[in-house]
């Protein structure tokens, strides 16, 4: 049953990423070069919209709070993020979008190449894991699973606000998405 859900939700997520054009390296380069911010608008809005839905569904009891999953903050998040940024800027893709690209015509070979590189990267990580742990990468600045707002008793929050705070953050994200400049090269969209 859970596997079936996994298939359906994975198809939906891949479909949504495809429609956001996130699987196109040109769109990610455009966003990172700050020339075409459509993808940034979409991502900001989607995250904000997700927060609003999360806040409402948590408040009304629709959401099982055990489904929430907040990741630990430690030095590795920063170092890992910086390394991730090299790959993100270089390839114009990320772990989710390269997998998605495999399903598209014209993007499959590139997507598969990124996946192969990714498996190698994860392999090297596994081999260095003990060394990185010994270096204290995961213990330094480890402040645990911290959230901005009090979304569940499992996590410590920075601010005293609950779902109202998260709702306002979500609306703020949606507003930022709204304000960000529209794609100037709208004509190119039909072409691409």
């Amino acid at each position: 049953m859970k596997l079936l859900l996994g298939i359906l939700l994975g198809v939906f997520f891949g479909f949504a990423l495809y429609h956001a054009q996130a699987a196109k390296p040109q769109k990610i380069y455009g966003m990172l070069q700050l020339k075409d911010l459509e993808l940034m608008k979409i991502i900001f809005f989607a995250i904000g919209f997700g927060s609003v839905l999360l806040a409402i569904s948590a408040k009304t009891g629709l959401l099982n709070l055990e489904h929430l999953s907040v990741k630990t903050m430690h030095l590795g998040v920063i170092i890992g993020g910086l390394i991730f940024g090299i790959g993100f800027g270089l390839g114009g893709t990320c772990p989710g979008t390269c997998v998605t690209a495999i399903g598209t015509k014209g993007g499959a070979k590139r997507g598969l190449s990124v996946v192969l590189g990714g498996i190698s990267g994860a392999f090297v990580f596994l081999c260095c894991k003990n060394m990185l742990t010994a270096l204290g990468l995961f213990d330094t600045w480890n402040i645990g699973k911290i959230t901005l707002f009090h979304i569940s008793d499992t996590y410590v929050s920075l601010l005293p606000f609950r779902y109202g705070g998260l709702l306002i953050m979500g609306l703020l994200f949606m507003a930022i998405a709204w304000i960000l400049p529209e794609n100037q090269s709208a004509k190119e969209r039909s072409f691409s």
Binding site: T72, G80, I86, G87, V114, G117, G118, A122
Partner: peptide, 24 residues
């Protein structure tokens, strides 16, 4: 593409997540 994938996943695993898990 291969190099980009390498850095992406090396970084993501050190950070404990990627664009979908951490960011979104």
């Amino acid at each position: 593409a291969f190099c980009s994938g390498f850095f992406l996943l090396l970084g993501a695993r050190i950070a404990g997540g990627c664009t979908s898990g951490h960011m979104m």
